[in-house]
Design a protein around this nucleic acid. Sequence first.
DNA 1: CGCGTACATAGCC
DNA 2: GGCTATGTACGCG
Length: 149
Amino acid sequence: MQKFDLSIVSCEIGSVLIFTKNGICEKIELSNDLYAPSGENIFTAQISEYLSGKRREFDFPVRYSSGPVFEKIWESLKENVPYGKIITYGELAKICNANPRVVGYAMAMNRLPLYIPCHRVVGKNSLGGFNGKNGLKWKEYLLRLEGSI
DNA sequence: CGCGTACATAGCC
DNA sequence: GGCTATGTACGCG
């Protein structure tokens, strides 16, 4: 069994749970419930700054793998969609030579909701979903934070 | 291991 | 407005 170290950053609408192991972030979870802030490290520091609008990008080690196609999509997303910009599933799909549906699925399988800017990926005729209906609140909050809406 | 189904969509009829 | 395409992951037999 893997033993994860849990760090927590709280904000107005909920808390960000950061699961790290050996100094590497392996999982991020967005919760609507408020937790007591825990852990002072580069993860909590950067996310806290990001939620305050001071930081635009994250610079901490992460680890993810759910297939080569998904990694390509996430890499293309980070490279082509900077802070404050949004992209549609179709455009992102065109960049990484995939299909829109695959992109949506890649976002659904994303384990790092904040590090991977999946909240900047929206549908053409709708905002799309985000981490289920539970995280749609977060999506709106993040897009508003970046000034996209 | 092979088949069928579900996905946070886009595009055509 | 409704149906189909296209790729991946997951469940079941």
